[in-house]
């Protein structure tokens, strides 16, 4: 199979304006992935599926990943005026990388029996901008899995034929797979060794302070 660099070059040549980055993977598995831009994602996906040497016709696994805001600390040499003269000073700066949600697709080829090629798309942010183009029109197997990502991570897939919650019930409001999801504390509690659960549940069901109830409404 071609290397990712070749695929990137050919895809960028075939689709004008498309931008593809290679995300390295340092672990022993050594499965690097292609980061494709959201605007051209359906065209790139179609290219990967239909290109005669690639023929990635089987989209095996679709999943979401939540990356929270990260702060990386760096030391940068900055020119500064210290005591009247200009000096080069090492200054620690904090670089804030805003969080984003990611959709990861693992592609295989049933025709040529090769793979996996991993492609990923990133949302703009974790709030309102959590939108991605749906790849369900290209690979039908993404249908339920994109619904699952929508349910558990809250990425809206534009162009999905039937975007509803799939595992949680329709009235559920949060997205439970997000890293900052807070579990509800209304457990049915019972004497177990789970002390923290018990404490939280007791707190939840504790009678309200007396003055609150006495206050005239």
């Amino acid at each position: 199979m071609e290397s990712l660099e070749q695929i990137k070059a050919r895809a960028e040549a075939a689709i004008p304006g498309a931008k593809i980055d290679i995300v390295p993977n340092l672990g022993p598995a050594n499965q690097p992935s292609l980061l494709i831009d959201n605007e051209h994602a359906p065209a790139i996906a179609k290219f990967l599926r239909d290109d005669p040497t690639l023929r990635l016709d089987f989209c095996s696994n679709v999943t979401g990943v939540d990356w929270l805001d990260r702060v990386t600390k760096k030391t940068v040499k900055v020119k500064k005026v210290v005591e009247g003269e200009e000096k080069e000073v090492n200054e620690p700066i904090e670089e804030r990388i805003p969080g984003y949600l990611e959709a990861v697709y693992h592609l295989f080829s049933m025709a040529h029996k090769h793979g996996p090629i991993t492609i990923r798309m990133r949302t703009r942010d974790r709030g309102e901008g959590a939108r991605l183009p749906s790849l369900t029109p290209v690979w039908r197997s993404a249908e339920f899995q994109e619904r699952e990502i929508f349910d558990l991570y809250g990425i809206r897939f534009d162009g999905h034929p039937d975007l509803r919650r799939i595992l949680m019930w329709d009235e559920f409001e949060d997205h439970p797979m997000r890293k900052d999801y807070v579990q509800p504390d209304d457990f049915e509690w019972e004497p177990t060794p789970h002390d923290d659960v018990l404490a939280r549940a007791k707190q939840h069901y504790a009678p309200r302070p007396a003055e609150q109830e006495l206050r005239p409404s």
Partner: peptide, 22 residues
């Protein structure tokens, strides 16, 4: 395990069972 990600799969009796780990 070291930093990285991996997708492993086998032919389970019901089909392709895969685990994706980061």
């Amino acid at each position: 395990p070291p930093v990285g990600e991996a997708y492993g799969r086998i032919e389970a009796p019901k089909g392709e069972l895969g685990f994706y780990l980061i």
